[in-house]
């Protein structure tokens, strides 16, 4: 009888100890060790939902791991060879077989259901908040692909993300049908906070993968295809990421930054960029005119 006491006590210790241990390890979230057990606190609803889903699966996984590993250790200790011990010649047990088959299936049903509940918040973009960038009729989007999801009010900021060896280019779509005068940037994407931003992800050369961990998951940039995702940054700040699909020797240096700023600052930045493009266009037009004038002058001289 005494043999049974010890494992039971050990089991009780595990049952109380593990949740405490897990909780203790969860405390430093938000600090430098935020990524120790799970993804860092996201700054976009999709990243936040993924994190919640991750931790639900993590909790079930801990139970499963410590349960089965504990059972294994118990078996190894309890049934180690001793003098006079004779192994029982058991060939199996159909009830147990059915039991763990159904048990495993049930666990997966639970995970599937949780995933299906969490999925819309990750997959479907929400509307922009009132505190976000005021989106006018110019921001009403039409879906550019069968797989592109739009927010319910169809209003969002659309940015084309183009991967190329070894940089990311961001082109701000303005809906005027002319993409030569669009604001663009390399390396750093500037976005307004609280505003739904749709990303249309493309590649110019090989496959890349767009990933800013705190703003949602990875989406590959595959040449010949357009991939879609969205983000809605809730906190101003700079979020780091990098290409996550091997693309060549400098894959490691293909980094990206998203700088989220309040909508009014964003509008000022955007207008400034737009003005600079207009100014550059004007200068270029003047230059072309001057060159054309020189050419006609040269032609008349001949």
């Amino acid at each position: 009888m005494r043999v049974f006491v010890r494992p039971q006590r050990a089991g009780r210790l595990l049952a109380t100890g593990i949740p405490i241990l897990v909780a203790a390890l969860l405390v430093p979230s938000g600090t430098a060790f935020a990524g120790l057990l799970g993804p860092d606190v996201g700054a976009s609803p999709n990243a936040a939902s993924i994190r919640q889903l991750y931790y639900i699966i993590f909790a079930l996984a801990c139970l499963l791991f410590f349960g089965v590993a504990g059972l294994l250790v118990y078996m190894l200790v309890k049934f180690r060879a001793r003098k006079g011990a004779v192994a029982e010649q058991i060939h199996g047990n159909n009830r147990l077989e059915v039991g763990w088959t159904v048990g495993a299936a049930l666990l997966l049903v639970v995970i599937s259901v949780v995933t299906l509940i969490k999925l819309p918040g990750i997959y479907n973009p929400p509307n922009s908040s009132a505190a976000g960038l005021p989106l006018t009729d110019a921001n009403v989007l039409t879906s550019t692909g069968a797989r592109e999801k739009l927010p319910p009010n169809r209003r969002a900021l659309a940015i084309e993300v183009t991967g190329q060896l070894y940089a990311w280019r961001f082109t701000y779509e303005d809906g005027d049908g002319n993409n030569l005068n669009n604001v663009y940037a390399y390396e750093q994407m500037v976005v307004p906070t609280n505003t739904t931003v749709l990303l249309r992800i493309k590649s110019l050369d090989v496959a890349h993968s767009w990933w800013i961990p705190e703003l949602g998951g990875k989406h590959d940039a595959v040449p010949g295809y357009t991939n879609f995702t969205w983000m809605k940054v809730t906190k101003p700040g700079t979020y780091l990421g990098q290409c996550a699909e091997l693309c060549g020797r400098n894959h490691a240096s293909m980094t990206a930054r998203v700088r989220a700023i309040p909508p009014d600052e964003y509008q000022a930045w955007y207008n400034g960029q737009k003005e600079r493009i207009r100014e550059a266009d004007r200068l270029a037009a003047a230059e072309r005119k001057a060159q054309a004038g020189q050419q006609t002058a040269a032609a008349t001289q001949q």
């Binding site: 294994l72 078996m75 192994a87 058991i90 048990g103 495993a104 997966l108």
Partner: peptide
């Protein structure tokens, strides 16, 4: 992919229970 976990789980439990009431030589 979830479905693969069911037969894998069945295997693991059967292995663990192979030790049950055995006389394990380490």
């Amino acid at each position: 992919s979830y479905l693969v976990a069911v037969p894998t789980g069945v295997k693991i439990f059967n292995w663990v229970f192979t030790l049950w009431r055995g006389s394990i030589e380490f």
